[in-house]
Design a binder for these strands. Structure first.
Lengths: 202, 202
DNA sequence: GTCTATATCGGGATAGAC
DNA sequence: GTCTATCCCGATATAGAC
């Protein structure tokens, strides 16, 4: 029914907002109900328990993040452009979903087999593998200097993701306003891409 | 008294272990008591409340982390060595305290003014400022290429810290054992230093 | 399907004996 | 200082009217 789907959606949206911000143990069912503009009992009516609701949110978020990581590396553009596109894409995504990586990381930390369950049956990141092979190919041809592709991948992800995770510290420490931070991240797209490509000069 | 100090220490050690791993909302006083091998009531006898106990642990951890970040940049060695020392120092520290940065980040996220309170009266990172000036000086003299020093600082911290924060994901995704991960981080000291210095070639 | 009222439970905190 | 027993509140979950 229409109301049903509507309420269900509202609950999911509210739950995402609260869970992603506060984590499983920090979130209150009352907060979620308030955020959704409905009654606490409705949450249980639709999703049975807090844990069940959380699992839905978590799996969705994980899917979203992994898809994102994967997708950029799948294109067939030349290496330099691929790096630029990846960096740009990550930073853009995180600008609109700043809490996402921290949320995922935390909950996996609390319960590492959440991740394993998810991947027991699904294929492992073919595109990351593909990207690594692309890197190796470039090295063979002498177009970039040699280094461990895994380290390069880690470097790229680190530089894109970490500033968002550490945002409150950065802003607090360096007295940056939200405005400042946004600008810094916007400039960062260009800066990180350059940083990587410059480092890879043979 | 001796027993007192001894118990106090035991409690603090236990509290650190539990809080750092589970966070404020995830930690249970019972867990801490168990870990310390004492009774729940003792926690309140010595430290009054969960919040009070948490504050002690948090402030200690913050102090430790910030001191560490600050100290490396204070030396008077040449630029290249300073970078190498910083990277080496961070990765070594985090290898033995892997949960530390995530803990700090999370709790500041939940309560941003924790950080502000801490710095209301103490001086702001003089050494980071000093490092930035050192960077600028190198750029002026053409020994390294020009870029925003702030971005360089972010890059450095990102590449050192992020892999530890994201450790469970990395290990899960790439099927790495603890052994593998340790080796990867060990190699990383050299790799990241090189990555940075290579990028900075004029 | 949506609400109010209530049962139930976990966990922080305290009382009080020793 | 250390323990057991208990209080009490907040939060999840359910019952039941509408």
């Amino acid at each position: 029914m229409q109301t049903t789907n509507n309420t269900e959606r509202q609950i999911i949206e509210a739950a995402r907002k609260i869970f992603v911000k506060k984590g499983l143990s920090g979130a209150r069912m009352q907060d979620i109900a308030d955020e959704a503009g409905i009654n606490k009992a409705m949450l249980h009516y639709y999703y049975r328990s807090k844990d069940k609701l959380f699992e839905i949110i978590f799996n969705e978020a994980l899917e979203q993040l992994l898809t994102r990581i994967n997708q950029v590396f799948s294109g067939d553009m030349p290496f330099q452009e691929k790096v630029a596109a990846a960096v740009d894409n990550y930073i853009s995504t995180l600008s609109t979903n700043p809490y996402l990586p921290l949320f995922i990381i935390n909950e996996i930390n609390q319960n590492p087999n959440r991740l394993l369950e998810r991947f027991r049956h699904s294929p492992m990141f073919p595109n990351v593998q593909k990207f690594i092979m692309h890197i190796q190919e470039e090295m063979e041809n002498g177009r970039i200097r040699k280094m461990d592709p895994m380290q390069l991948l880690l470097n790229t992800l680190s530089m894109c993701i970490f500033p968002f995770a550490a945002r409150p510290i950065i802003q607090g420490l360096f007295q940056k306003t939200d405005e400042d931070f946004s600008r810094l991240m916007e400039e960062r797209k260009q800066s990180v891409t350059e940083f990587i490509l410059m480092s890879l000069r043979p």
